[in-house]
Every structure is written in C-alpha cells, then in structure tokens.
C-alpha cells in the first residue's frame, strides 16, 4: 500500500497536500493526532472509498480490504455467522466459528447484531475483518467500547491473524498502538504534510 504525493480535500478545506506514505508487510502503523486532522480520511483513501485530487494510491488488494470502521457496520438482518459468511462465502461454519471463539463470541454465532452489547458487536466487526483475511487491514479506533481484557484479546487476535499483512490503525492512546505492536505516526507526519513511515 503506497500513497504518493496525494492531495485531498473538500471545497474550501484542504486535508492533505503532497502526502506520501507507504505501509510495509508486518510493520503496523498507528496514526495518532487531534480529531479532524484527517486520520479517518487517510484510511478511506487507503480503502479506495475516496479518490485523491492528485497523486496516486496503489496496492489496494483485489480481494478487498479488511476494514474495521469507526462504526461496526454489521448487517442488522443477518446473524453474526451470516455477517462473517457475507464477506467469506466459501468458508465453512466451523471455520467462521473458529474466528469467533478467540474473541469470546463462540456462543453468539446465531445471534442478531441487535442482541449484542456494544463491545460484542465491536468484536464481531473485528472477526469479520479476519474472515476476509485481506493482506491490507485498516482499523479505525478498533478498541472502542472494549474493556481492558477484551482489548488484549482483540489485539492478540489481530496480531496473530494479520501477522504478515499491511496494517494501518487510527488510535487515541499510545497503549492501543503498543497492543497492536504498531509504530506511532504523529499528526505532524500526515496533517497537511507528507511523511515516510
């Protein structure tokens, strides 16, 4: 995944100017910085949800991107397992259950998202990212709503499942970056500038 000389903004508001940034396999990057400085926008550019005004974004994997959005974005009419099967239609039920168990969700396979607590739904969103198992993982505040024990669990799960992947995360605290084993990229690197992490 590589952004080179990317300029992006909305009418009247420039967010990035000439930003260059590369993600390397097995070297997770965590982006920290004040809100509104474009961290989520940067993830959206990497996911192909936004197009740069100039410059290029390369390396979006053809199989899709394992992305944990700021919101869980689970399909409310489908059960937890069906939500996972949606992104990985060829996986067997047992394979998908094996993604839920390490996150403490083994009993929730047939539950609808509306029956889950906020923390459980967050973990399902994380399991869904693993169900696709893309070589690019994008995490937007992945630990929101998780208690310390579940943060540890989720982080260990992600580190194991995406060991050799390109990973970028938006986090609020240094500890969250540490949990992911990610190198912190501060606001100075990407807010309106260019950087080379």
């Amino acid at each position: 995944m590589e952004l080179s000389h990317v300029t992006f903004g909305y009418p009247g508001r420039m967010i990035f100017r000439d930003l260059s940034l590369a993600l390397k396999p097995g070297e997770p990057v965590a982006m920290m910085g004040p809100s509104g400085c474009g961290k989520t926008t940067l993830l959206r550019l990497m996911a192909g949800l936004e197009r740069p005004l100039s410059g290029t974004v390369c390396g979006i994997p053809p199989e899709g991107v394992s992305m944990v959005f700021q919101e869980n974005r689970l399909v409310p009419s489908l059960t937890v397992l069906e939500n996972l099967a949606l992104v990985s239609p060829r996986s067997r039920r047992e394979e998908l259950l094996a993604l839920l168990a390490p996150l403490g969700l083994a009993a929730e396979g047939d539950s609808l998202p509306s029956a889950l607590s906020g923390g459980m739904a967050r973990r399902v969103a994380i399991a869904r990212a693993a169900a696709l198992g893309s070589s690019l993982l994008l995490l937007d505040e992945p630990f929101t709503g998780l208690d310390p024990e579940n943060r540890q669990r989720a982080a260990a799960f992600l580190r194991e499942r995406f060991a050799g992947a390109r990973v970028a995360a938006v986090v609020h605290h240094r500890e969250e970056a540490d949990l992911l084993g990610a190198r912190i990229v501060g606001a100075g690197t990407f807010c309106g500038r260019s950087g080379e992490p």
Binding site: G48, L49, M67
Partner: peptide, 8 residues
Amino acid sequence: EMAQVYRL
C-alpha cells in the same frame, strides 16, 4: 461502503 470495501 462496507460492501464496497469488502468487495461483496
């Protein structure tokens, strides 16, 4: 958007 990112 989720569907687009996950290539459903």
